[in-house]
């Protein structure tokens, strides 16, 4: 697991949307995103990020305090130490007050054509 310098997130919300602060959970600590823009209402796009500078043993997007939140698409851009930046796109998933979405992915392994 590489050291995560920072990451940015882009959330496309479906129906239902979510009201309230968008929080993520890193190593069991709940923290709000920084440099946020947009929203998480139905059809809205939320963008935010965080400068971590540590190892993300766990990294998860926290579900709403109540009701449900449909995420149409979640794109995460990671910047890790000693690795080129990479992005991961997560497909549709619904969160509620009992769930959080795992948004950590290790950098892709190098490949070659043969």
């Amino acid at each position: 697991m590489p050291k995560l310098n920072q990451f940015k997130i882009r959330i496309e919300t479906g129906d239902p949307g979510m009201e309230g602060l968008v929080l993520f959970n890193i190593n069991s600590h709940q923290i709000p995103f920084e440099n946020v823009s947009g929203g998480t209402g139905t059809g809205e796009v939320f963008e935010g990020g965080f400068e971590v500078n540590s190892f993300a043993h766990s990294l998860a997007l926290i579900g709403p305090k109540k009701d449900e939140w449909l995420l149409r698409k979640v794109t995460v851009d990671y910047e890790c130490e000693n690795a080129p930046p990479y992005s991961v796109e997560f497909g549709e998933v619904k969160l509620d007050e009992t769930t959080e979405l795992d948004i950590w992915k290790d950098p892709p392994l190098p490949t070659f054509d043969c």
Binding site: N25, E89, E92, V93, L95, E97, T98, T99, L101, D102
Partner: peptide, 12 residues
């Protein structure tokens, strides 16, 4: 504390 279950979404 609220115990939440970590779920995974399909990766495109």
């Amino acid at each position: 504390p609220v115990i939440r279950r970590v779920i995974r979404a399909p990766v495109a």
